[in-house]
């Protein structure tokens, strides 16, 4: 079932056309790799999906409804979460605290909101176990590895019961050893029924997990096909423009 559907989405910044008539869709439980060179329109597309700004043209359907996001909260309320490359985490707090930041489990007693530390800790432990991550709920985020930090950010989206998660360059700033850990996390998100848009520069990582690959070049979508039906060579050629379209 199609979860997200974009039709003829375009975006202009003044006279500059950043995105031209892009059709793009994501099905439930599908991992779509979104790829393209710098300035190809990836981040513009992601920002439109995340609700940072509405598109200049085109229509967007999500979960069976016509949607028009004006603010990130609109997208979040609809069930779309974005995990940014610089991972919005507070280094000085524990992983459980970050997981629940902004939605702490609490008792309300006479105007005071008292945190339920034990419940948050328990649930955090559960979530990390589900993701098969070795992240400890009490560990300060400062002390975590890049992979574990990704696990915290991704677990946040599970907590929000997001239907669609956009991962912006999740493997960009971590060591080679942790990449497979993060790729496993992404597969597990799919196994739990979440749809994932995986934005990356690294073809190897996209091909390792994506069911489908969409390639953007100069604001246009130049390819959109199952990853089994294409190859890193073809995608590279599409990104650079050696092949016009496929």
């Amino acid at each position: 079932m199609t979860l997200l559907q974009l039709r003829g989405i375009g975006m202009d910044y003044g006279a500059i056309c950043a995105l031209a008539e892009v059709d793009f869709s994501v099905a439930q439980g599908e991992i779509v790799g979104l790829i393209g060179d710098n300035g190809a329109g990836k981040s513009t597309l992601v920002k439109i999906i995340a609700g940072n700004f509405p598109p200049s043209r085109g229509k967007m359907r999500f979960d069976g409804h016509e949607v028009r996001f004006r603010r990130p909260e609109d997208a979040r309320n609809a069930g779309i979460e974005v995990v940014y490359q610089d991972l919005a985490l507070a280094d000085n707090l524990s992983s459980a605290a970050n997981l629940y930041l902004g939605r702490e489990l609490q008792w309300r007693i006479g105007g005071l909101s008292i945190m339920d530390h034990a419940a948050m800790r328990r649930r955090a432990e559960q979530l990390f176990a589900e993701l098969k991550s070795d992240t400890r709920p009490d560990a300060l985020v400062r002390t975590l590895s890049g992979g574990q930090r990704q696990a915290v950010a991704i677990a946040r989206t599970r907590l929000a019961a997001a239907k669609l998660v956009v991962l912006d360059e999740p493997t960009a700033s971590i060591s080679v050893r942790q990449v497979s850990e993060v790729l496993d996390l992404i597969r597990r998100m799919r196994d739990h029924g979440q749809a994932v848009i995986f934005v990356s520069h690294t073809l190897l990582h996209i091909f390792a997990v994506a069911d489908r690959i969409a390639v953007l070049r100069r604001g246009r979508k130049v390819a959109d096909k199952p990853s089994a039906a294409t190859s890193p060579e073809e995608v590279t050629a599409l990104i650079t423009g050696a092949i016009e379209e496929a």
Binding site: A88, L89, A90, D91, N92, L93, A97, L101, G102, E104, Q106, L112, S113, I114, M115
Partner: peptide, 14 residues
């Protein structure tokens, strides 16, 4: 214990 405290540390941290 308060959510306020947690949020205060978060604001200072990031």
């Amino acid at each position: 214990q308060l959510v306020w405290g947690r949020h205060l540390y978060a604001v200072g941290g990031n």
